[in-house]
């Protein structure tokens, strides 16, 4: 099956590490121009080099996820640099954090508002695309109680509802909107890598619930993400796909 992505223009928020990076480089491997944004200029440079090694164009800006104007500017600059946009993936995240009040604001800005801001700026360009798609990266942690009550889980839940409503609103405009719920994912520099060492009991508790006793690799998440954004999934919109290797136990009817 051909994903039919070659030549597409893709923007991935937070595409310099982990799942976001894996999504960005997989799009590049499929022949797409890819733009990313993240905190670290060095990681952006490295990822851009990796993207360009597939013979496609890249774009990238170092920014703080809670700087709304910076996210908007990056989105506009990406569309300018690529001359349009076909796919927007919102994967920027503040990660987990304790339940302190400030973390709610941080999660709100970075996980939720960076997505809404990027979508707003991308919308006029997506509208003119032949194969427009938006993918919102939520989390399995939105669907089941997970670790502890914290802003992260709740903001990821908000993303699901929002993306479903977007899907309905954007469908007539030819823009598909889907949502992805990755389960625990291990990659170099992931929070799980830290938790495995620094909070080994939490880690082994989570691993015990994973039927295969391992976490996902970032690319295993990215493959589903890229599929949902590709023309091969053209009848899929308003869907929430959980990719967790069987971690969650609830039955979705």
């Amino acid at each position: 099956m051909d994903l039919d992505l070659k030549g597409s223009k893709v923007a991935v928020t937070g595409g310099s590490r982990g799942i976001g990076k894996s999504i960005a480089t997989l799009f590049a491997a499929e022949g797409c121009d890819v733009s990313i944004c993240a905190r670290g200029p060095e990681t952006i440079e490295k990822t851009r080099a990796e993207i360009e090694s597939h013979g496609v164009k890249s774009f990238g800006t170092a920014l703080q996820g809670r700087d709304g104007e910076a996210v908007r500017t990056w989105t506009r600059d990406t569309c300018d640099a690529f001359g349009g946009l076909d796919v927007l993936v919102c994967s920027l995240s503040a990660g987990g954090g304790t339940n302190d009040e400030r973390y709610w604001y941080r999660s709100f800005e970075i996980d939720l508002m960076s997505a809404t801001r990027a979508v707003e700026e991308a919308y006029p360009h997506l509208k003119s695309s032949e194969n427009a798609a938006i993918l919102v990266v939520s989390s399995m942690a939105a669907a089941e109680t997970f670790v502890s009550p914290m802003a992260y889980n709740s903001m990821k839940a908000a993303l699901i509802t929002w993306s479903k409503q977007l899907a309905e609103q954007f469908a007539p405009k030819g823009i598909r909107v889907n949502c992805l719920e990755p389960g625990p994912t291990m990659f170099p520099g992931s929070n799980w890598e830290m938790i495995k060492v620094a909070r080994s009991r939490t880690y082994s508790g989570v691993l015990r619930q994973q039927p295969t006793r391992r976490m996902a690799e970032a690319e295993e998440i990215a493959r589903s993400a890229v599929f949902l954004c590709s023309p091969a999934a053209r009848w899929v919109t308003g869907a929430t796909l959980r990719v967790d290797g069987g971690y969650t136990k609830g039955v979705q009817f």
């Binding site: 905190r39 990660g95 941080r106 520099g189 830290m194 620094a198």
Partner: peptide, 29 residues
Amino acid sequence: RVNETTEIPHLIKHAMKEAGMDPADFDGR
């Protein structure tokens, strides 16, 4: 010996909080 994470490790967060510095407001690496 370890990779830098996105999230600030909990012991570092604790040290920040002890000093009255809110980790949730820290945008650096």
